[in-house]
Amino acid sequence: MDIKIQNLSKSYGVQKAVDHISFEVKTGEIVGFLGPNGAGKTTTMKMITSYLDKDEGDIFIGGQPANERHIKKHIGYLPEHNPLYTDMPVIDYLEFCAALQGVPKPEMPGRVREMVRVCGLDVEKHKRIRELSKGYRQRVGLAQAMIHDPEILILDEPTTGLDPNQIVEIRELIRKLGKEKTVILSTHILPEVEATCDRILIINQGKIVADGTADVLRKQAQGQQVLRVRISGADTDTIFERLQGLPTIASVDILDADNQRFELQSVPEQLSNQATFELCVRNKWVLLEMIPYETRLEDIFRNLTL
Protein backbone atom coordinates (compact mmCIF):
# COMPACT_ATOMS: atom_id res chain seq x y z
CA MET A 1 0.00 0.00 0.00
CA ASP A 2 1.57 3.27 -1.00
CA ILE A 3 1.39 6.52 0.84
CA LYS A 4 1.30 9.99 -0.60
CA ILE A 5 1.77 13.23 1.27
CA GLN A 6 0.77 16.50 -0.28
CA ASN A 7 1.57 19.95 1.05
CA LEU A 8 1.58 18.84 4.65
CA SER A 9 2.07 21.73 7.08
CA LYS A 10 2.11 22.22 10.80
CA SER A 11 2.98 25.19 12.96
CA TYR A 12 3.55 25.45 16.67
CA GLY A 13 2.62 29.06 17.32
CA VAL A 14 4.73 31.17 14.98
CA GLN A 15 7.25 28.41 14.42
CA LYS A 16 6.69 26.37 11.28
CA ALA A 17 7.57 22.82 12.19
CA VAL A 18 6.61 21.32 8.86
CA ASP A 19 6.36 23.55 5.84
CA HIS A 20 4.38 22.27 2.86
CA ILE A 21 6.15 19.02 2.33
CA SER A 22 5.11 16.53 -0.32
CA PHE A 23 6.47 13.08 -1.04
CA GLU A 24 5.42 9.62 -1.95
CA VAL A 25 6.42 6.18 -0.72
CA LYS A 26 5.67 3.10 -2.78
CA THR A 27 4.75 -0.34 -1.56
CA GLY A 28 7.77 -2.36 -0.50
CA GLU A 29 9.97 0.70 -0.25
CA ILE A 30 11.98 1.63 2.84
CA VAL A 31 12.36 5.36 3.06
CA GLY A 32 14.79 6.97 5.46
CA PHE A 33 13.75 10.27 6.91
CA LEU A 34 16.90 12.15 7.65
CA GLY A 35 17.39 15.50 9.26
CA PRO A 36 19.00 17.34 12.13
CA ASN A 37 17.22 17.45 15.47
CA GLY A 38 14.17 19.67 15.30
CA ALA A 39 13.90 19.47 11.52
CA GLY A 40 10.31 18.26 11.63
CA LYS A 41 10.78 14.51 11.21
CA THR A 42 8.82 13.50 14.27
CA THR A 43 6.10 16.06 13.66
CA THR A 44 5.63 14.76 10.13
CA MET A 45 5.42 11.21 11.38
CA LYS A 46 2.95 12.14 14.09
CA MET A 47 0.75 13.79 11.49
CA ILE A 48 0.89 10.75 9.22
CA THR A 49 -0.16 8.56 12.13
CA SER A 50 -2.97 11.05 12.91
CA TYR A 51 -1.69 11.61 16.44
CA LEU A 52 -1.30 15.29 15.62
CA ASP A 53 -3.80 17.22 13.56
CA LYS A 54 -2.36 18.68 10.40
CA ASP A 55 -2.80 22.38 9.69
CA GLU A 56 -2.89 21.90 5.96
CA GLY A 57 -2.32 19.26 3.34
CA ASP A 58 -3.52 15.80 2.40
CA ILE A 59 -2.48 12.27 3.15
CA PHE A 60 -3.45 9.51 0.73
CA ILE A 61 -3.14 5.87 1.63
CA GLY A 62 -3.46 3.40 -1.22
CA GLY A 63 -4.70 6.23 -3.41
CA GLN A 64 -7.53 7.12 -1.02
CA PRO A 65 -7.72 10.25 1.09
CA ALA A 66 -6.99 8.95 4.56
CA ASN A 67 -9.33 9.45 7.49
CA GLU A 68 -8.40 8.69 11.07
CA ARG A 69 -9.92 5.19 11.25
CA HIS A 70 -8.38 4.26 7.95
CA ILE A 71 -4.94 5.43 9.04
CA LYS A 72 -5.06 3.62 12.36
CA LYS A 73 -6.05 0.36 10.68
CA HIS A 74 -3.30 0.45 8.06
CA ILE A 75 -0.41 2.05 9.88
CA GLY A 76 1.80 0.55 12.53
CA TYR A 77 3.70 3.13 14.55
CA LEU A 78 6.72 2.97 16.77
CA PRO A 79 6.96 6.34 18.53
CA GLU A 80 10.23 8.01 19.44
CA HIS A 81 11.75 6.67 22.69
CA ASN A 82 9.56 3.57 22.33
CA PRO A 83 7.09 4.09 25.19
CA LEU A 84 5.90 0.83 26.75
CA TYR A 85 3.87 -0.32 29.74
CA THR A 86 6.86 -1.62 31.61
CA ASP A 87 4.79 -3.39 34.27
CA MET A 88 3.15 -5.69 31.76
CA PRO A 89 4.50 -9.05 30.66
CA VAL A 90 5.42 -9.13 26.97
CA ILE A 91 2.61 -11.48 25.95
CA ASP A 92 -0.07 -9.53 27.87
CA TYR A 93 1.15 -6.32 26.35
CA LEU A 94 1.00 -7.67 22.82
CA GLU A 95 -2.48 -9.05 23.46
CA PHE A 96 -3.57 -5.68 24.79
CA CYS A 97 -2.27 -3.94 21.66
CA ALA A 98 -3.90 -6.53 19.42
CA ALA A 99 -7.23 -6.06 21.16
CA LEU A 100 -6.97 -2.29 20.81
CA GLN A 101 -6.29 -2.64 17.12
CA GLY A 102 -9.40 -4.76 16.74
CA VAL A 103 -7.70 -8.06 16.00
CA PRO A 104 -10.53 -10.61 16.34
CA LYS A 105 -10.25 -12.82 19.39
CA PRO A 106 -9.79 -16.16 17.57
CA GLU A 107 -6.86 -14.74 15.59
CA MET A 108 -5.18 -13.16 18.59
CA PRO A 109 -2.99 -16.04 19.85
CA GLY A 110 -1.81 -16.66 16.30
CA ARG A 111 -0.89 -13.03 15.72
CA VAL A 112 0.92 -12.76 19.04
CA ARG A 113 2.85 -15.95 18.36
CA GLU A 114 3.74 -14.71 14.90
CA MET A 115 5.07 -11.42 16.27
CA VAL A 116 7.07 -13.19 18.96
CA ARG A 117 8.62 -15.32 16.23
CA VAL A 118 9.30 -12.53 13.72
CA CYS A 119 10.79 -10.21 16.34
CA GLY A 120 12.80 -12.94 18.04
CA LEU A 121 11.15 -12.53 21.44
CA ASP A 122 10.69 -16.18 22.22
CA VAL A 123 13.19 -16.39 25.08
CA GLU A 124 11.85 -13.27 26.77
CA LYS A 125 8.15 -13.57 26.15
CA HIS A 126 7.10 -14.33 29.73
CA LYS A 127 9.16 -11.58 31.33
CA ARG A 128 7.82 -8.22 32.30
CA ILE A 129 8.86 -5.50 29.89
CA ARG A 130 10.89 -3.62 32.50
CA GLU A 131 13.12 -6.69 32.91
CA LEU A 132 14.10 -6.62 29.24
CA SER A 133 17.24 -5.10 27.80
CA LYS A 134 16.91 -2.11 25.55
CA GLY A 135 17.32 -4.17 22.39
CA TYR A 136 14.50 -6.48 23.41
CA ARG A 137 12.30 -3.56 24.37
CA GLN A 138 12.83 -2.20 20.90
CA ARG A 139 11.72 -5.54 19.50
CA VAL A 140 8.62 -5.37 21.65
CA GLY A 141 8.01 -1.89 20.25
CA LEU A 142 8.29 -3.22 16.72
CA ALA A 143 6.07 -6.17 17.57
CA GLN A 144 3.31 -3.93 18.91
CA ALA A 145 3.54 -1.75 15.81
CA MET A 146 3.00 -4.75 13.55
CA ILE A 147 0.53 -6.70 15.64
CA HIS A 148 -2.43 -5.92 13.37
CA ASP A 149 -0.42 -6.66 10.23
CA PRO A 150 -0.42 -3.10 8.90
CA GLU A 151 0.76 -2.43 5.38
CA ILE A 152 2.60 0.70 6.41
CA LEU A 153 5.15 0.99 9.19
CA ILE A 154 6.25 4.31 10.63
CA LEU A 155 9.29 3.98 12.86
CA ASP A 156 10.62 7.01 14.69
CA GLU A 157 14.31 6.50 15.42
CA PRO A 158 14.09 2.75 15.83
CA THR A 159 17.75 2.20 16.70
CA THR A 160 18.60 5.01 19.12
CA GLY A 161 20.29 3.84 22.27
CA LEU A 162 21.07 0.35 21.04
CA ASP A 163 24.50 -1.24 21.04
CA PRO A 164 26.14 -1.98 17.68
CA ASN A 165 25.03 -5.63 17.66
CA GLN A 166 21.47 -4.73 18.48
CA ILE A 167 21.51 -2.04 15.80
CA VAL A 168 22.53 -4.61 13.21
CA GLU A 169 19.79 -6.98 14.38
CA ILE A 170 17.07 -4.35 14.31
CA ARG A 171 18.22 -3.17 10.88
CA GLU A 172 18.06 -6.68 9.54
CA LEU A 173 14.62 -7.04 10.98
CA ILE A 174 13.49 -3.82 9.32
CA ARG A 175 14.98 -4.90 5.99
CA LYS A 176 13.16 -8.20 6.24
CA LEU A 177 9.87 -6.48 7.01
CA GLY A 178 10.44 -3.90 4.32
CA LYS A 179 10.16 -6.51 1.60
CA GLU A 180 6.41 -6.67 1.99
CA LYS A 181 5.58 -3.45 3.76
CA THR A 182 5.95 0.22 3.14
CA VAL A 183 8.34 1.56 5.74
CA ILE A 184 9.18 5.11 6.72
CA LEU A 185 11.87 5.38 9.34
CA SER A 186 13.48 8.45 10.78
CA THR A 187 16.99 8.71 12.03
CA HIS A 188 19.92 11.03 12.27
CA ILE A 189 22.41 8.21 12.04
CA LEU A 190 23.76 8.38 8.51
CA PRO A 191 25.20 4.90 8.01
CA GLU A 192 21.82 3.62 9.10
CA VAL A 193 19.96 5.00 6.13
CA GLU A 194 22.59 3.66 3.77
CA ALA A 195 22.34 0.26 5.37
CA THR A 196 18.58 -0.03 5.53
CA CYS A 197 16.84 2.37 3.21
CA ASP A 198 16.04 2.26 -0.48
CA ARG A 199 15.53 5.96 -0.58
CA ILE A 200 16.49 8.96 1.47
CA LEU A 201 14.49 12.06 2.25
CA ILE A 202 16.48 14.82 3.86
CA ILE A 203 14.38 17.33 5.73
CA ASN A 204 15.58 20.60 7.16
CA GLN A 205 13.62 23.38 8.83
CA GLY A 206 10.38 21.73 7.86
CA LYS A 207 11.21 21.41 4.18
CA ILE A 208 12.40 18.53 2.08
CA VAL A 209 15.83 19.43 0.75
CA ALA A 210 16.77 16.18 -0.96
CA ASP A 211 14.97 13.09 -2.17
CA GLY A 212 16.54 10.07 -3.84
CA THR A 213 18.69 6.99 -3.38
CA ALA A 214 22.07 7.38 -1.74
CA ASP A 215 23.72 7.11 -5.19
CA VAL A 216 21.53 9.74 -6.78
CA LEU A 217 22.15 12.11 -3.92
CA ARG A 218 25.87 11.57 -4.24
CA LYS A 219 25.82 12.34 -7.94
CA GLN A 220 23.75 15.44 -7.36
CA ALA A 221 26.07 16.65 -4.67
CA GLN A 222 29.20 15.79 -6.56
CA GLY A 223 28.48 16.87 -10.11
CA GLN A 224 31.69 15.47 -11.55
CA GLN A 225 33.87 12.45 -11.09
CA VAL A 226 36.74 12.68 -8.65
CA LEU A 227 39.65 10.23 -8.78
CA ARG A 228 42.54 9.86 -6.43
CA VAL A 229 45.63 8.43 -8.08
CA ARG A 230 49.16 7.61 -7.09
CA ILE A 231 51.67 7.41 -9.91
CA SER A 232 55.40 6.70 -9.88
CA GLY A 233 57.98 6.67 -12.68
CA ALA A 234 58.60 10.38 -13.16
CA ASP A 235 58.96 13.48 -11.03
CA THR A 236 55.86 15.10 -9.57
CA ASP A 237 55.89 18.17 -11.78
CA THR A 238 56.03 16.20 -15.03
CA ILE A 239 53.17 13.95 -13.99
CA PHE A 240 51.21 16.96 -12.86
CA GLU A 241 51.64 18.75 -16.20
CA ARG A 242 50.83 15.71 -18.32
CA LEU A 243 47.72 14.94 -16.26
CA GLN A 244 46.55 18.48 -16.71
CA GLY A 245 47.00 18.09 -20.42
CA LEU A 246 44.35 15.36 -20.61
CA PRO A 247 41.15 16.58 -22.25
CA THR A 248 38.76 14.84 -19.80
CA ILE A 249 40.38 16.31 -16.74
CA ALA A 250 39.24 19.66 -15.48
CA SER A 251 41.70 20.15 -12.67
CA VAL A 252 44.50 18.39 -10.84
CA ASP A 253 45.50 18.83 -7.23
CA ILE A 254 48.66 17.55 -5.66
CA LEU A 255 47.61 15.85 -2.46
CA ASP A 256 50.98 14.52 -1.40
CA ALA A 257 54.06 15.53 -3.39
CA ASP A 258 56.41 13.00 -1.75
CA ASN A 259 54.24 10.01 -2.48
CA GLN A 260 53.02 11.52 -5.77
CA ARG A 261 49.34 11.41 -4.94
CA PHE A 262 46.97 13.49 -7.04
CA GLU A 263 43.31 14.29 -7.03
CA LEU A 264 41.79 14.53 -10.48
CA GLN A 265 38.50 16.24 -11.13
CA SER A 266 36.90 15.27 -14.44
CA VAL A 267 35.08 17.53 -16.82
CA PRO A 268 31.33 17.24 -16.06
CA GLU A 269 29.70 14.14 -17.59
CA GLN A 270 33.10 12.67 -18.51
CA LEU A 271 35.13 9.88 -16.94
CA SER A 272 38.90 10.02 -16.89
CA ASN A 273 39.82 6.53 -15.66
CA GLN A 274 40.77 5.27 -19.11
CA ALA A 275 42.63 8.39 -20.22
CA THR A 276 44.66 8.39 -17.00
CA PHE A 277 45.50 4.72 -17.40
CA GLU A 278 46.53 5.16 -21.03
CA LEU A 279 48.66 8.16 -20.14
CA CYS A 280 50.56 6.03 -17.65
CA VAL A 281 51.05 3.22 -20.19
CA ARG A 282 52.31 5.64 -22.86
CA ASN A 283 54.89 7.10 -20.46
CA LYS A 284 55.74 3.78 -18.86
CA TRP A 285 54.70 5.11 -15.45
CA VAL A 286 53.42 2.84 -12.74
CA LEU A 287 49.85 3.47 -11.65
CA LEU A 288 49.99 2.48 -8.01
CA GLU A 289 46.50 3.53 -6.93
CA MET A 290 43.33 4.73 -8.53
CA ILE A 291 40.44 5.34 -6.15
CA PRO A 292 37.15 6.83 -7.23
CA TYR A 293 36.28 9.29 -4.52
CA GLU A 294 32.71 9.23 -3.31
CA THR A 295 31.19 12.15 -1.51
CA ARG A 296 30.22 10.85 1.85
CA LEU A 297 26.63 11.06 2.94
CA GLU A 298 27.81 13.11 5.88
CA ASP A 299 29.05 15.80 3.52
CA ILE A 300 25.83 15.84 1.56
CA PHE A 301 23.91 16.07 4.80
CA ARG A 302 26.05 18.91 6.08
CA ASN A 303 25.83 20.79 2.84
CA LEU A 304 22.08 20.57 2.75
CA THR A 305 21.29 21.24 6.36
CA LEU A 306 23.78 23.83 7.49
Binding site: Y51, K72, P79, L100
Partner: peptide
Protein backbone atom coordinates in the same frame (compact mmCIF):
# COMPACT_ATOMS: atom_id res chain seq x y z
CA UNK B 1 4.91 11.14 31.42
CA UNK B 2 5.94 7.85 29.85
CA UNK B 3 4.67 8.79 26.40
CA UNK B 4 2.38 5.78 26.23
CA UNK B 5 -0.50 8.11 25.49
CA UNK B 6 0.93 8.46 21.99
CA UNK B 7 0.98 4.73 21.67
CA UNK B 8 -2.64 4.42 22.76
CA UNK B 9 -4.02 7.19 20.62
CA UNK B 10 -2.34 5.97 17.46
CA UNK B 11 -4.09 2.65 17.94
CA UNK B 12 -7.69 2.22 16.94
CA UNK B 13 -8.98 4.16 19.96
Amino acid sequence: KTGTIELLLTKDV
